[in-house]
Design a binder for these strands. Structure first.
Lengths: 224, 224
DNA sequence: CGGTTGTATGACAGTTGCGTGACAAAATCG
DNA sequence: CGATTTTGTCACGCAACTGTCATACAACCG
């Protein structure tokens, strides 16, 4: 059974979408605001998310950005505006598809299916990454040092995964901001701080790190 | 660099798409029939495929199905028909996205990017440049001498990479200033100093260098 | 050979980049 | 709601790096 979350402030449209999707065999749930949607997705992750761009409070773009930061779920934008700028901006923010209202439910369903096929392929079992005493299992969301679990926060974990995924290669602060945070305000110190915190947890001697190495002027990298 | 293959039988449209995509920074290639496209993809796989639905011989749907059987490349349909049935059928066949002509190139580009984000490769091969005992790995931001890591500064590293990239060829001080520093105040001594520092680190006998050679009156070059 | 030009190098001061602790805002949890 | 954790921002200090200069040295040329 596939779960779909619909984030749309217009009650009538949301209801119509939910009913139509239910008819197509999905298990559905709805949210009227971005905040509510983000919360629901955190509580009980759906397999697909539909989001309107025009939302009260946090708008759709911001909603997408935030959700993308903590979840890899396929996100489809359903908007009334058929505007290239909106489309580009939404995809930039991390959306996977963009549909213009009114949507044909069959098309929507087909697009959801295509997206899930991709998502599944991308989420193939990721083996545990090992760096000496350090083990990272992206799937389990777990970090171990000499067999012992290390409590890391979400950002630290994402940062570590990003570095681990490109082990041995330098990643600039800019790249890390882009990939871990999803945005780049230009404040590179943000990365430093989190790298520092990560070192406190995973390095024997945070003063002279063995794994999470600084390359002055270039960025950071993770080595074995 | 991202490669895109466009399968479209209308010469004018294909050309227009190819030019526009090239303008966006993609490396492009085109095919006029499904058969040709499948062959090209087999020969030299692109990172994205655009396909028209109305093709002579094998139609777009069949083209998608076959390509999907042997390749996991993201496929985008670009069709003149804005018909739910076509859209559903194309997605069923294995397409990842569907755009209706005429397409906004910016939107297309954004959608391609969104698709690739999902299919981002974990580790690309890391090319390492070797000069006898000396190894330079631009990706890892690392220089090794006889297997041992040599600590080089950012400018030294850039300088070395620049020389390595044009191995065996003389680079004048002005060229190096321009390429490594990005500006040229006319002070050629600056290059000398950094070359000297580099030699201290990578040459066995910095007095009579084997790799980083001076060509009096011309500049420097890196030899094997 | 001496003069001239081009290159090597050590020293030094100014600058840059990084690590860190402190703190406030925001998110999360009970 | 209040308590706790997490996150982002800031400022400061240290260490590393950079560019400049002066001097010494080497190569070239007549």
């Amino acid at each position: 059974m596939t779960d779909v979350l619909v984030i749309e402030d217009d009650d009538r449209i949301r209801l119509a979408l939910l009913l139509a999707l239910e008819d197509e065999g999905y298990r559905v749930r709805g949210a009227a605001t971005a905040e509510e949607g983000l919360l629901m997705q955190r509580r009980e992750p759906a397999d697909n998310v539909l989001v309107d761009l025009m939302l009260p409070g946090l708008d759709g773009f911001e909603c997408i950005r935030r959700m993308r930061r903590e979840d890899d779920v396929p996100i489809v934008v359903v908007s009334a505006r058929d505007d290239t700028h909106d489309i580009v901006a939404a995809l930039e923010a991390g959306a996977d598809d963009y549909l213009v209202k009114p949507v044909a439910i069959k098309e929507l369903s087909a697009r959801l299916r295509a997206l899930r096929r991709r998502a599944r392929a991308a989420t193939d079992p990721v083996p545990v990454l090992t760096f000496g005493q350090l083990e990272i299992s992206p799937d389990a969301g777990e970090v171990r040092l000499a067999g012992r679990p290390v409590p890391v926060t979400r950002t630290e974990f994402r940062l570590l995964c990003e570095l681990a995924e490109h082990a041995g290669r330098v990643l600039s602060r800019h790249q890390l901001l882009q990939r871990v945070w999803g945005y780049d305000t230009g404040d590179e110190r943000l990365v430093d701080v989190h790298v520092g915190r990560l070192r406190q947890k995973i390095e024997d001697d945070p003063g002279s790190p063995r794994h999470l190495v600084t390359l002055r002027g270039l960025g950071y990298k993770l080595t074995r």
